[in-house]
Amino acid sequence: MFNRIGVLAFHGDVIEHIETTKNASKNLHLDIEVVPVRAKDIIHTLDALIIPGGESTTLHKLCEREGMWEGMKKIKNIFGTCAGAIMLAKVVHHKTADQKTLELMDIEIDRNAYGKQTESFEKNIQISLGNINAVFIRAPKIKKVGKDLEILARIKKEIVACEQRIGDSYYLATCFHPELTSTVFHEYFIKQVYRI
């Protein structure tokens, strides 16, 4: 058995996630194969999937056209950043008429809620995982979370990172892009995946 984490690779900041995941596994002294995912036939071989930033409308369409949608729902561990977080949410505000999400996490999320690109921002946040520079790009806002969700980061009252365990499944969502500035979240995700 070898360790294998996939990064959904149709579109978005895929290389950034691949690099950050590799660096995170190096920091943890783990041997993990990090693979780009573009086809349904490798979905079942993954220990975990990372869904990058990009456009959630585009990601949904390409996954469905590839016929990997139902398979993705069965992946035990998923980490989504920005568009990826939208993909995980049960309820999405301001989605397009034909847009679907995986509906795995008990969160309500509002697309582009911080506004257009001129409202994008970065902010240093201090959280239990460490000190990180959080970059928000046309970011979504998490409006509501279910009872059994853990909040990992807030900015003032806004929840910007959270996690959920359901049975032996684990999901992690951030509204910002930790892959651009830090390995902290990727290390944390890997630790949850491999129960370290």
Binding site: G12, V14, Q117
Partner: peptide, 15 residues
């Protein structure tokens, strides 16, 4: 803010 625009462009890759 050069950085944030660069980051938005990164999110468009593959598109």
């Amino acid at each position: 803010n050069n950085r944030l625009g660069k980051n938005l462009a990164q999110m468009l890759k593959g598109g």
